[in-house]
Structure formats: C-alpha cells, structure tokens
Computed example of a mutant assay.
Amino acid sequence: MDKSELRLYYKNQEDLSYALREYIDYYFEGNIEDEKLEANIIKVIKGNEDKFYKNNEVAKKPKQILGKSRLDLIEKILNKKK
C-alpha cells in the first residue's frame, strides 16, 4: 500500500488502527499536506465509526495502537469539522 493512501473501510479495529498510525506517521514525516490528511482522516473515521468508537468514546484497541499524540491529532481534525 502506498503510505499516502488510505482505504475507506477496514475489517477490524486492529487493521484500521495500524493503517491510521502509519498514515499519521507519514504525515509527521512531512510527506502529506494538511488538507489531504484532514479529508482522509474524516472519510476513514466516518466509514469505520463502528470500529473506531465504542460507547461514544474511542475504543480500547485504537487507543492502544495509536497513542496519545496521534489520537490528539485525530480529535483535533474531527472537532474542526463540527
């Protein structure tokens, strides 16, 4: 998979979380524009809400895999959209 691309749907929390982690790390390395990152994160989370959230919170597995700084970035992007 090209690191600058994300699939829209994932079969489980682990696949989703590792894909997001790799994508965000690629962004942190300066390889992805802010607008592209924001658009893709919003699309992927929206398409996988059932895997990313549990009881209106980020599920345990994504929290563990992504870590605090990546989750903070995702939260900032999602809150900006509202």
Rank of each mutant, 00 (worst) to 15 (best):
D2P: 15
L6T: 06
L6C: 06
R7W: 13
R7G: 04
L8C: 03
Y9T: 15
Y9W: 05
Y10L: 09
K11R: 12
N12D: 15
N12Q: 07
N12K: 15
N12P: 05
Q13P: 01
Q13D: 02
S17Y: 15
S17F: 15
S17D: 11
A19C: 07
L20I: 03
L20A: 04
R21T: 00
Y23H: 11
I24L: 09
D25W: 03
Y27N: 00
F28I: 09
E29M: 10
G30A: 13
G30M: 15
G30T: 11
N31Q: 10
I32P: 06
I32L: 11
D34G: 06
E38Y: 05
I42A: 02
K43D: 14
V44N: 07
G47I: 03
D50Q: 13
D50G: 08
N55I: 03
E57I: 07
E57T: 11
A59H: 02
K60W: 07
K61I: 10
K61R: 11
K61D: 01
Q64Y: 14
Q64E: 13
I65C: 01
K68W: 08
S69H: 12
R70A: 06
D72M: 06
L73F: 01
E75N: 07
I77C: 04
I77V: 13
K80G: 04
K81N: 11
